[in-house]
């Protein structure tokens, strides 16, 4: 997994330490810690994982092993407007794949990537449980239901500066 090289500020390190401390620096709380830390930073760059590893006294390899196991964790920062296509079965049979293709075409990026300007990122997610609205697309917190490939441009238009 490629990562963006960053330098953590002292206050960032302090914040990570605080989060680990709030879980008593217990190794068994690794996943809860990662959830919290990703909540703060938006993603989990290598430098962040190293601080977590040393605070919880586990090897950084183990932390990385956990981060790369779970699809919820990411080492790549999301775009300002993260686009998520539901690829659950209900959405699939109602044409999610075509909608995904259209987003890829319109944004010019693949799944798991961000546009160069950092405005959009594209991911797939499993069932969001809004199967009645299939196919479903989420942009940030907003849910779009019954999306057709033709509607993709209109959705993206809403996020023009």
């Amino acid at each position: 997994m490629s990562s963006i090289k960053i330098k953590l500020k002292d206050k960032d390190v302090e914040q990570i330490k605080e989060i680990c401390g709030s879980f008593n620096n217990q190794a068994g709380e690794l996943i809860n810690v990662l959830h919290k830390v990703q909540g703060v930073f938006g993603y989990l760059p290598a430098e962040v994982q190293e601080v977590v590893a040393s605070e919880l006294n586990v090897s950084v390899a183990k932390v990385y092993g956990v981060v790369t196991f779970y699809s919820f964790f990411t080492m790549i920062p999301k775009g300002r407007n993260p686009v998520s296509i539901c690829t659950g079965t209900a959405c699939y049979v109602r044409g999610a794949e075509k909608v995904l293709e259209e987003f890829k075409k319109e944004l010019g990026i693949g799944v798991g990537q961000s546009t160069p300007d950092g405005k959009f990122s594209l991911t797939c997610l499993r069932c969001v449980g809004a199967c009645g609205l299939a196919p479903v697309v989420m942009v940030g917190e907003k849910t779009y239901g019954r999306v057709s490939p033709d509607g993709v441009k209109d959705i993206l238009k809403e996020y023009e500066d």
Partner: peptide, 8 residues
Amino acid sequence: LRYGAGAF
């Protein structure tokens, strides 16, 4: 509560 992180 314990949180899953996206693994079927």
